[in-house]
Amino acid sequence: MLVDPLAALIEGPSRAALRLALAVPLSGPLGMTGPAALACAMLAAEEANESGGLRGRALELVTVDAGRAPDEVAADMRGLLAAGAVDAVCGFHTSDVHRALKAVTANRTPYVFTPPHEGGRPGQGVVLLGESPREQLAPVTAQLSARRALRRWALVGNDYIWPWAVHAAAVPMLRASGAEVVLDRLVPFGGVDAERLVSEVRRSGTQVVLLSLVGRDLATFNRAFARAGLTDRILRVSGALEENGLLEAGGDDSGELYAVMPWFASEADVDGFAQRYADRWGPTAPALGAYAHGCYQGVRHIAALAAADALNVRSLGTTAPGPTGRRNRAKLARADGLTLTVVH
């Protein structure tokens, strides 16, 4: 079911299979989420194939490491498309990679982008399953600003497109709720000086830190934050924290670390997904999280379009529901040990 990209290039177009380029981070700051993403995508493909396939074709996944530099990922995807080796693109990755892939796939092949995104127009043939910064933050900023008079906020993120959009959306929303931004910092990927950042946060007198750091950088910051003894004094909210990131950070028992994502493994398993995942991969499976679950939804969405003979760039909407028929919506969850529990 998993096809090496070099093999796909050599073989070219396939009549027997619909080949989906699965662009997920297998390296880089988000690389720790890759194993669960592969497991979820494979589960989605297996379910599609077991249900009879896609109009006589099997669904296969061509893996593309989207954890590299945007131009490298785009070059690989351009080669696959030029060779007719893939029929669609799906996955999650940072928004700079997303922009590069959008330019390559525009008006050419369907592209389903599954995680929270930076907002703006998605482009022809691009489907967004996640939320924009405003959609993520709207249910949260007013609630937390009103709680215990939490009025002083710090914004800390990586220096690329998605955190820029998060900060741009957060500032007016916080001001409208009566809060102020006392610190605004963006740091390079992989170059986060966590001790220095934590020191700046402490000196700023902030009450809440809105984190748009991702992957390993987010975990590094949270570990330094705990070492500094600030977990009971300053509340943290992240738009990119899910179970893998919490495990990487060593867990959190303070009750003052929150995540804003659309899905958590600790939720009631309404559609049975977590149980199907556990049944398929067993007790040693990679930890489930929102990124991986979004990847599952993306593959299922591609499969549904193909089964309906609607997998073409002109027929795609810019947003889409998941397999349950509902669009992803952000939820607020609190870290408790090594789980994230929905609080509203």
Score class of each variant (00 low, 15 high):
5 P>G: 08
5 P>T: 13
14 S>A: 15
17 A>S: 13
21 A>G: 05
31 G>M: 10
33 T>E: 12
37 A>S: 15
55 R>H: 04
55 R>C: 08
60 E>S: 12
64 V>G: 05
72 E>Y: 02
86 V>P: 10
89 V>S: 13
89 V>Y: 09
91 G>I: 03
97 V>Y: 12
103 A>E: 11
106 A>W: 08
106 A>G: 05
113 F>D: 02
120 G>W: 13
121 R>L: 09
125 G>H: 05
131 E>K: 09
139 P>C: 02
143 Q>E: 03
149 A>W: 13
149 A>E: 14
152 R>S: 08
158 N>A: 08
158 N>C: 11
163 P>N: 08
168 A>C: 09
170 A>W: 06
188 P>W: 01
194 A>W: 04
194 A>T: 10
200 E>W: 10
204 S>K: 02
206 T>I: 04
207 Q>M: 04
210 L>W: 01
214 V>W: 00
219 A>C: 11
219 A>P: 07
220 T>N: 14
224 A>Y: 15
229 G>Y: 01
229 G>Q: 08
232 D>V: 05
232 D>Q: 15
240 A>F: 00
240 A>M: 14
241 L>P: 01
247 L>G: 07
249 A>N: 14
260 V>T: 14
261 M>L: 08
265 A>N: 06
268 A>C: 01
270 V>G: 00
273 F>C: 05
279 D>Y: 03
284 T>P: 01
286 P>K: 06
291 Y>F: 15
294 G>Y: 05
303 A>M: 12
306 A>D: 04
309 D>H: 12
311 L>M: 11
312 N>W: 14
320 A>N: 10
323 P>K: 03
331 K>Y: 04
334 R>A: 14
337 G>M: 15
339 T>G: 15
339 T>I: 12
342 V>T: 05
342 V>F: 00
343 V>K: 01
344 H>T: 00
344 H>Q: 02
